[in-house]
Write a protein that binds this DNA or RNA. Structure first.
Lengths: 206, 206
DNA sequence: AAAAAAGAGAACCAAAAGAGAACGTAAATT
DNA sequence: AATTTACGTTCTCTTTTGGTTCTCTTTTTT
């Protein structure tokens, strides 16, 4: 299996990301049109390289002949470039405890947003009733604003970070835990800085 | 290995910090553009120095153009092969609903076991008190036995699949939901087949 | 002022990318 | 049945890309 050239990778990634948008199976001419190329022959050369690389396979049944992605290709797709930085842990009442050297975690596409994200580990029980337990990991979209009802990473008085539901009004900000034994905290808007919004959560049972 | 000049270090740091922003190992021209330089030849001189310092890997072979970081190469390597098959959804009282074509999800290493695993999506609320909500994804280790207290995928009477706590004794098997409004189900051992054990859980808030 | 480093830009060359013609076969249309 | 159309395949030829090597000028350091 040869290595791919840059253009071959480009075409593979395009194919992979837009596969559903084509008729099945996509024709060379369709691919040319989609990628703004004029020559079927040139496209054929690229596809042949992808077949040799095992990322795409030629496919034939009674009615259709063409190409489709191999399962290996899907696997590779999911695995690469999907890693998010795991920056540390967050415990109500303390600043975010950053790791000295940032790790990366492969995170499924469905748990992310299309904006930059990072991963934190939760310490504490303040969100148990929202299904977020001590030790869980959360995926946070980096953002400085939020809508009421979202779960946010909030920095209070530039010193403590916490994960809570947020309710904002012009004169005050409520940070609301999901734990009947705790109560909401009230702040002035200038005391609270939003650092991100919860978009995903993960737990290990090992 | 020689000492780096200031500019060489600058270029290396730029490369290290912005590597993800290039969709491919950057070419000399791309680096020039990114760093506001006009001469490919000059950039070449710097990169050659970085290669000699062992910080960067070469574009030497014509097939795969561009340069990459040597250390980064490792991280990229290690991020691969992390995808698990997403086989379908499980709802208490029905068989597992399999997808016609299996997808793959990149799953963080910490949510897996070292045995073969797969991913299911949960339908229903029978495990809410264990923090597993409707629509969550779970990582299941493929296994036909379990310890009491583990959460398992159980196939009942070869027809319905369900995710529950398990308690086994010689004469009966209890499948226990985590939902106060539901009650445990009692079966003979031969009626219940364990298909896997919960090792991870994920949720999207999007 | 001398030396070192940085940069511009031209010239060179091999590989890759692309265009487009030509061919064969199989389905679709007449 | 004959013809057209669709589409993969193969081929040649041209253009572009991108690393390499120069030389010459400008900037920085000592």
């Amino acid at each position: 299996m040869n290595e791919l050239t840059r253009r071959q990778r480009e075409i593979f990634e395009f194919l992979r990301d837009n596969y559903e948008k084509f008729s099945f199976p996509p024709t060379l001419d369709e691919l040319c049109a989609a990628l703004g190329m004029a020559s079927r022959g040139s496209m054929h050369k690229h596809i042949t390289a992808l077949i040799e690389a095992g990322l795409v396979e030629s496919f034939a049944d009674q009615k259709n002949t063409g190409i489709r992605l191999t399962s290996r290709a899907q696997r590779e797709y999911e695995a690469c470039e999907h890693a998010l930085p795991f920056v540390g842990s967050i415990a109500a009442g303390k600043p975010i405890e950053a790791l000295e050297n940032i790790n990366y975690m492969a995170v499924p596409e469905v748990l992310k947003s299309d904006k930059p994200c990072y991963v934190l580990q939760i310490k504490g029980d303040s969100m148990v009733e929202a299904g977020i337990f001590d030790g869980d990991w959360v995926v946070i979209e980096q953002r400085s604003y939020a809508q009421n009802g979202e779960i946010v990473v909030a920095l209070i008085e530039k010193s403590e970070a916490t994960l809570k539901y947020i309710e904002q009004s012009p004169d005050k900000v409520l940070l609301i835990p999901a734990n009947a034994s705790m109560s909401a905290m009230v702040y002035r808007p200038d005391q609270v800085e939003i650092q991100g919004v919860l978009v995903g959560q993960m737990r290990s049972y090992r």
